[in-house]
Design a protein around this nucleic acid. Structure first.
Ligand SMILES: Nc1nc2c(ncn2[C@H]2C[C@H](O)[C@@H](COP(=O)(O)OP(=O)(O)OP(=O)(O)O)O2)c(=O)[nH]1
Ligand SMILES: [Mg+2]
Ligand SMILES: [Mg+2]
Ligand SMILES: [Zn+2]
Length: 603
DNA sequence: GCCGTTTTCGGCCCGACTGTTTTCAGTCG
């Protein structure tokens, strides 16, 4: 775990424990916000802490948190947090993970029944003594029993690539219901986070009951969690069979929660804004509205009511703005903020809409496999597919010799392959077919082919495949060597992580990014939804470091081209612009960059 | 605990659903 993650975890745990202790919830929130701020710090906390001002300049981190961070870096501990920790049995935090159990309820279990663990809780349920606690009736206890039975599934997050098709399907299905004017999927799926905790579906309708009925009647519904006039939640069966990454994998639960929200048709924009989030972004927006004498909620932007305590029916009040997101942003004095960056990570300081990379900007694929290694297409059909997508360039990058399980090519076979690629290039007009390789970065940082061979390739993607549990030092040395290699163009899936499967390498990213920027090596954002590597926050750090990026599909089968949307969305989450994305460049510029690393080659 | 185009002190986003509550607290989005 990186030092930032470690610090963030401590702040979050302290926040949760203070909640249990009944601490003022503004302070609890402040600590949770500090945790988030630390987690998404643009640099290593240890570096940042050298300059106290740099720390306190981060929104959410004040004098007290800065002290704690400094203390942790100096001593490896935070005394005040350790004292809090000593007062709260650790098992209580696990209890709060159970859906429906919050700090107030768990505190009652603890203080009035001596419960400090899941076993304790089971015991007072079984012997019935739980019923004597305040606000504990038969229904409440049954829900807790259910929550325990379903285990930890509440905290499980599903890969975006598995969840998105279902979200789109449900939104499309509900759009056909009578009275519905619009539907959309929202939440983290719309923001294109690499994993989602649930599906959030919005429907605008003049007949809310009809939508609710259709929702609860969906064939995928396993269980209805709650259902009211404007909002319902269910557990859905998640079909993972369609993918070779699905069934039989560690994807433990084949179910996902789905939240439906229904609003009147003329409030769609405000509701979409609310339901897209993120929560932190929403809170900032609402604070901004409030500061301007307004109030913002899912029904629209309104003048703040004179009477603080009044609870108007906002759905019937005339809004200043509500119909479209654009109108609401505009009324708040903000540009249109793309969903992918609504994370309270600086987007509210933008004076104009950022120009982020778009799907249609991608004009080349620089990482693709053929039947020569573990791909399903031969060179010509691969090129044909790329051409269909409107690409001007496709690079053939099969595996290298140290990946025998992936059909890695011996030097001799690679030489033959290069010839085959050159011949195919002559037969397929209208697209540039490049001879390349996805060369293994071996554990010590050396590459899998000799320089004399690499020199003959138009493009070299260097990727780590084995030894992915190296320590930080080894991983840093390894990737640095690859990035500094004069014949390498792209660092492929830099960490080798697989979502929900393995963490991958955890190098000192800062060093890698600085070296990549200096050497004009592009960092890949591997678009496969199992990888998304670099991930969003790393892509943003790469942007800040001045790096080039490449959004590649790592094509193995024809359908893999469709993963581009995930890669582009991840790039957008990293604030990547078109001019920094090498495969969004026009052909001459791309080819010139590639050639710049082949100075000895005649043109 | 954080923060300031009204504030360095006094605020801090706002609403839906549920169960047990006879009037609303707790949890969640
Ligand atoms: N204003 C406000 N909006 C919230 C709050 N909690 C959630 N929302 C909004 C923003 C969220 O993106 C949206 C959906 O809630 P979720 O809990 O599903 O979160 P989200 O989808 O962002 O992340 P997830 O991947 O599901 O964990 O609802 C809140 O406390 N206040
Ligand atoms: Mg969600
Ligand atoms: Mg949700
Ligand atoms: Zn590959």
């Amino acid at each position: 775990m990186s030092i930032n993650d470690e610090l963030a975890a401590r702040f979050l745990a302290a926040s949760r424990m203070l909640e249990l202790l009944g601490e003022d919830h503004f302070r609890v929130n402040a600590l949770a916000r500090a945790a988030r701020a630390i987690e998404s710090l643009p640099a290593d906390a240890a570096d940042l802490a050298k300059d106290r001002k740099a720390l306190t300049a981060v929104p959410g981190i004040g004098a007290k948190s800065a002290d704690k961070i400094t203390e942790f870096i100096a001593t490896g501990a935070i005394a005040e947090f350790d004292e809090i920790k000593a007062r709260v049995p650790p098992g209580l935090l696990d209890l709060m993970e159970l859906p429906g159990l919050g700090p107030k309820t768990v505190a009652v279990f603890w203080n009035q029944a001596g419960v400090t663990s899941l076993d304790d809780l089971k015991r007072i349920i079984d012997d019935g003594s739980i019923l004597s606690l305040p606000r504990m009736g038969a229904k409440s206890v049954e829900k807790i029993r259910q929550a325990i039975a379903f285990g930890q599934s509440a905290s499980h997050r599903t890969a975006l690539g598995l969840a998105l098709p279902l979200a789109e399907h449900i939104a499309a299905r509900l759009a056909k219901v009578r009275g519905v004017t619009r539907t959309a999927f929202a939440g983290s799926a719309r923001r294109a986070k690499d994993t989602v905790g649930d599906l959030d579906i919005l429907a605008a309708s003049s007949d809310p009951d009809a939508v609710t009925r259709a929702f609860l009647d969906l064939p995928q519904v396993l269980q209805v969690l709650q259902s009211g006039p404007g909002k319902s939640s269910v557990r859905l069966a998640l079909d993972t069979a369609s993918s070779r990454w699905g069934r039989g994998s560690s994807e433990s639960t084949a179910a996902i929660q789905c939240d439906l929200r229904i609003v009147p048709p003329d409030r769609f924009g405000a509701a979409l804004m609310y339901f897209t989030g993120s929560k932190e972004h929403n809170v900032r927006l609402r604070e901004r509205a409030r500061a301007a004498g307004l109030t913002l909620n899912e029904y629209g932007l309104f003048h703040a009511p004179a009477d603080e305590a009044s609870k108007p029916d906002w759905s019937r009040k005339d809004p200043i703005a509500a119909h479209t997101e654009h109108e609401v942003f505009k009324a708040l004095g903000l540009p249109d903020i793309p969903p992918e960056i609504r994370e309270d990570a600086g987007e509210l300081d933008l004076a104009e809409a950022p120009r982020l990379l778009e799907l249609g900007d991608i004009r080349a694929e620089l990482h693709a496999h053929t039947t020569a290694s573990d791909g399903r297409l031969d060179i010509e059909s691969l090129a044909a597919r790329a051409k269909e997508r409107g690409f001007h360039t496709i690079a053939v990058t099969d595996h290298s010799r140290s990946s025998p399980q992936a059909g890695g090519l011996s030097p001799e076979r690679l030489l033959q392959h290069i010839e085959d690629i050159r011949k195919a290039a002559e037969r397929v007009p209208g697209i540039t077919i490049l001879a390349g390789s996805e060369v293994d970065i071996l554990a010590d940082g050396s590459l899998d082919y000799d320089d004399s061979l690499l020199e003959q390739l138009d493009v070299v993607v260097a990727s780590p495949h084995a030894a992915l549990s190296q320590d930080e030092d080894a991983a840093t040395i390894r990737l640095l060597a690859a990035v500094r290699h004069p014949l390498v163009h792209i660092l492929g899936h830099p960490t080798g992580r697989l979502i929900n499967r393995r963490k991958g390498l955890e190098p000192r990213l800062r060093e890698i990014l600085d070296a990549a920027a200096e050497n004009h090596v592009a960092l890949e954002i591997n678009a496969h939804w199992m990888r998304l590597d670099l991930r969003d926050i790393h892509a943003r750090q790469a942007m800040n470091a001045g790096c080039l990026l490449a959004v590649d599909c790592d094509v193995h089968e024809p359908e893999d081209f469709d993963n581009l949307r995930f890669g582009v969305a991840t790039a957008r989450r990293g604030w990547v612009s078109k001019d920094r994305c090498v495969n969004a460049w026009a052909a001459p510029k791309l080819h010139e960059w590639l050639a710049s690393k082949r100075p000895h080659r005649p043109h």
